[in-house]
Simulated assay, not measured.
Amino acid sequence: MFELFILILALIISLIIVIKAADVFVDSIVEIGLTLGISEIILGVTASAVGTSLPEFGSAMIAILTGSPDVGVGCAIGANIWNIAGILGVSAIFAGLITTKMQEVRRDGSMAFLTTLTITTALLLMGEISFVVGVILIIMYVVYLWILIRAQKSSKDREIECCEVDEKNKDLNKKTILMAVLGLVGLAIGCRAIVYCTVELSVMASIPEVLAGILLAFGTTAPEFFTVLTSAKKGLNSLAIGTVFGSNIFNILIGLGIPSLFVTIPVEPITIYFDAPVMVFMTLLLLFLIKRGMKLTRVEGIILVASYIIYIVTRLTIFS
């Protein structure tokens, strides 16, 4: 009983740390972006996305390279489904409205869809992620980064502010960078604690392994959840959507691409024929909902969350 109390207390404290760390990380990364003249959306699909995706990347790498490839692939694909249907859905419900721009949907949304389509097609054709597939995935990410760099160079919207901010924020930049790093570290530590407590509580409660795996996936995506939710509530819509698109792209192209360079990754049939196609469907659903008015309202958020609930119930009852 005492151990149960300690785990619950640790879980609550970890959640508080993660919420505060996400707040600090979002504020700091936006300030850095403004200082350097980097657009909000590009910050979202690069720095924020990669930073918050480290738990999934690390989990997938460790699982794949230590002989549990199904866990690694499941973590990456499951995280992507949750990022779209769960995180953006919940954020839209709480924020009330998340807006975006056509160019962001065309570039980052299309890349997210192309990523899911590529990995799903490869799995359906080959039944595994080979070295060749890994090379293709990594090349796709390099090309995507090149497109982002070109987009940033051609954007001169903040040229007027650059000189002012540069001079007066030289000292502030160091503090802001430190706060961004501390926020990211806080996210990593807090989320690791959430994962540990979740797993331990599931073992104590004799929760089935499949359900424990889903709870673990929730833990690894906690940085994205709190970063996106905080961004949406602050009105930083491009950062919120950019973080999800960028995270989903990174999870597949790098999270599965890099380990496949070292070992061929076998994938179980249920992931190939159910989870991966659901990931493609969720991405298409998100793009369809956004394109209707370049925004996500509470209604769209409810649709996304309902879709995720249907997926989880189906996964646990029919395909478990």
Results as ranks from 00 to 15, higher is better:
2 F>C: 10
3 E>G: 15
5 F>M: 12
6 I>W: 14
6 I>R: 13
7 L>A: 12
9 L>N: 13
11 L>Q: 15
17 I>Y: 14
21 A>H: 06
21 A>Y: 03
33 G>M: 02
36 L>N: 02
38 I>S: 03
40 E>Q: 09
41 I>H: 05
41 I>Y: 04
42 I>C: 04
44 G>I: 01
49 A>F: 01
50 V>E: 09
50 V>H: 06
52 T>N: 07
53 S>P: 07
53 S>L: 03
57 F>Q: 06
63 A>S: 13
66 T>N: 15
66 T>C: 10
68 S>K: 12
68 S>C: 09
73 V>C: 07
75 C>A: 15
76 A>Y: 09
76 A>F: 09
76 A>P: 11
80 N>I: 01
81 I>Q: 04
83 N>Q: 09
85 A>K: 01
89 G>L: 04
91 S>N: 07
97 L>V: 08
98 I>Y: 01
98 I>W: 02
101 K>H: 14
104 E>W: 05
105 V>A: 15
107 R>H: 14
116 T>M: 07
117 L>Q: 13
118 T>C: 15
118 T>F: 10
119 I>A: 10
121 T>C: 14
123 L>A: 07
127 G>R: 03
129 I>G: 02
130 S>W: 09
130 S>H: 12
134 G>Q: 00
134 G>C: 02
135 V>D: 08
137 L>R: 03
141 Y>G: 08
142 V>E: 11
144 Y>F: 08
146 W>I: 09
147 I>R: 10
148 L>E: 10
149 I>V: 13
152 Q>I: 04
153 K>Y: 06
155 S>R: 11
156 K>S: 13
157 D>F: 10
160 I>V: 14
165 V>E: 11
165 V>T: 11
167 E>N: 15
169 N>W: 07
170 K>N: 14
171 D>W: 13
172 L>G: 12
174 K>T: 13
176 T>G: 10
179 M>A: 14
179 M>F: 15
180 A>F: 05
188 A>N: 11
189 I>Y: 15
190 G>Y: 02
191 C>T: 11
197 C>N: 07
203 V>K: 14
204 M>F: 12
210 V>K: 13
212 A>F: 05
230 T>W: 03
232 A>C: 06
233 K>P: 04
234 K>P: 02
236 L>T: 08
239 L>A: 07
240 A>E: 05
241 I>H: 02
242 G>Y: 03
253 L>F: 02
253 L>K: 01
255 G>P: 00
256 L>S: 02
256 L>K: 00
258 I>L: 04
259 P>Q: 01
261 L>M: 13
264 T>W: 04
265 I>A: 04
267 V>A: 04
268 E>N: 13
268 E>Q: 09
278 V>T: 08
278 V>H: 01
278 V>N: 01
285 L>Y: 06
286 L>A: 10
290 I>Q: 02
290 I>C: 06
290 I>P: 03
293 G>F: 00
297 T>R: 05
297 T>G: 10
300 E>P: 00
305 V>M: 07
307 S>M: 05
307 S>A: 14
309 I>H: 10
310 I>Q: 09
313 V>I: 08
314 T>Q: 11
315 R>Q: 15
315 R>W: 11
318 I>M: 08
319 F>A: 04
